[in-house]
Design a protein around this nucleic acid. Structure first.
Lengths: 340, 340
DNA sequence: ATGAAAGCGCTAACAG
DNA sequence: CTGTTAGCGCTTTCAT
């Protein structure tokens, strides 16, 4: 590492290249109107000095940070990671970079995070879910930038929405299980409403069961979110002890579903023979485990791509533009774990 | 969303609170020397105006962005996600925020990414691995900030290092398999050296096999990284077709190892009875699948935490401080998939 | 504990 | 195509 001496600025580059700082500035832009010859000599000077463009200064003067802020519950989740990837790919061609933060499924942390992110003056913000603290909501409303809520269909959206009904998607799973003759169906999910999407899935389960005239007395609380494989296995052990005659289980995610599946394997309980299992998310594991898992594909990368589209449209339209609502068509993936 | 009018600045807040902008600035700092009464009235004024502190301006004047740049190969990988979590938690108390980018296991993309990130003037940068393009290396060397290379032990480190020998860790796996009586051992990994850590694991496999006087003719190339579950299953199918007498398989990661395991399950091949399988990474699935997977735990969150420590120490010590090298003690996790 | 003046490094706006 | 001037919103520095 070189000793810290003052790093070169545009002025240094300009001096060495024998041009004005403004010309250096233009040379570093895509569309800057500079002759090829000038640009080349500027770039050579910059290279020679080890100059690295300072976007903090550019940002202040031009009022364009090139940031899009994104909040997700957890970075350690393939679904949200896919959404971030889709978003990132959709924004990159426009020179927009993602500024990512995680909320740990906690609206208080989300509020703090949103404030932190807004201080960086992002040009748009994408949040996961539609449930926020009052202050977080106010911050988003007053930010003066496009706001996109994702992975949900909020009752009262702040700005744009790219999502789907978690409840309806679980309803599809229930319908499928009932159609294939299951009646005593359980739901394994988180024990709080901190994970809004998880809570919505549970509500969707209850509503669909009632629609079919079936009891909803097999709700297993697997602990605070995120509910992962281990919690799924424990919840399945609990369920088998309490209600051994259960015919099918819907889990809040594929990870917990896979954990539940392994518990059946350890106990020699045939799946789907004696017990059907379904998950949510279409994580890679769902397609490859044995038996493969029936699940719902929420198209996470599509959510990201469409959120990017929403942002780009919103910038075109300006603050007076319409609120966009881009629905995501979830897809039921019927696999071995619920076959008849 | 409110119509975009000019957002309030410190000057507006100062005017409303009847103080100077400097006092507002101090009120927004942790240790600003302002009376409680003044701070309260400033905060009230700020609230009333919906003022949000502008760190882009703060950053320019103070030359402190509060960013630590981080590059990882993929966001969709629980190991790297854990490292980012550890890092993030270690840095948060110091007001440092992570600016994350992904390289897709591509050093050319890494170079571009590093330049992008350095333009944002991070106060330190953490990169995954120790292999970079020449220009990327030069950029890092001249950045004038602490540089930490992780997940590897580079021959010629740029700055600080927090890592372990991937080769040695795979050597431990080979030793274990040989000790338990396996001789015809295969390795499933990526087909290029793009994934440096994967390539190092393969080299470690070859070296350890040679040390034991065993042949290394069972190297399966599973495609370009990242090698995931599906590629692991395909590679196993290929291996079983070509070399059906294989006694054990080491996979470049737990994800491919799990895929390989499912392929055995589909074909009715007993694991570990007829074939032993080992992975790498100690992903959650390794501990919960049936049979559970023998693997190496690289302590990803520790890598992040120690990288944070390295950064904090380096800032204390200044540019003249020592190059830190914080080794990570990987842990062999012996489980059912290689039991005798 | 508070204020006044200056300026961080770049670019908008205008001129030529 | 290139240059000049001013200023983005804050904080450093120096004063009181």
């Amino acid at each position: 590492m070189s000793l810290t001496r003052k790093p070169p600025t545009m002025i240094d580059v300009a001096r060495l290249a024998g041009v004005s700082p403004m010309t250096v500035s233009r040379a570093f832009k895509q569309d800057g109107s500079v002759s090829d010859k000038t640009r080349t000599s500027v770039m050579e000077a910059a290279d020679q000095l080890g100059y690295v463009f300072d976007s903090t200064a550019s940002t202040l003067r031009s009022q364009r940070t090139g940031f899009v802020a994104v909040t997700i519950p957890s970075i350690n989740n393939a679904n949200f990671a896919d959404t971030v990837r889709g978003l990132s790919e959709g924004l990159k061609p426009y020179g927009l970079q993602i500024l990512l933060g995680t909320t740990d499924y906690d609206t208080a942390k989300e509020e703090e995070l949103i404030e932190q992110l807004l201080r960086r003056r992002p040009e748009a913000i994408v949040v996961t879910g539609g449930k926020h603290t009052e202050r977080a909501r106010r911050l988003l409303e007053n930010a003066g930038i496009p706001v996109v809520e994702t992975w949900d269909l909020p009752q009262d959206p702040i700005g744009h929405v790219v999502g789907f009904s978690n409840a309806a998607a679980v309803g599809d799973l229930v319908d499928h299980l009932v159609e294939t003759g299951r009646r005593r169906i359980a739901f394994i999910g988180g024990d709080t409403d901190r994970d809004t999407r998880g809570a919505d899935r549970r509500l969707g389960f209850i509503a669909a069961m009632q629609r079919h005239g079936l009891p909803t007395d097999r709700l297993i609380a697997a602990g605070p979110p995120p509910i992962s494989m281990r919690e799924g296995a424990n919840a399945m052990a609990h369920l088998l002890a309490e209600r051994p005659d259960t015919e099918a289980v819907i889990c809040v995610s594929d990870l917990s579903a896979f954990g539940a599946l392994t518990e059946c394997e350890r106990r020699g309980i045939p799946v789907p023979g004696r017990l059907a299992i379904a998950g949510f998310g279409d994580y890679e594991i769902a397609g490859i485990c044995v038996p493969s898992l029936t699940t719902v594909d929420p198209r996470p990368a599509d959510i990201g791509r469409k959120a990017a589209e929403a942002i780009l449209e919103a910038r075109e339209a300006g603050p007076a533009g319409p609120r966009l609502s881009l629905p995501i068509g979830t897809q039921l993936r019927l696999r071995q774990s619920t076959a008849r």
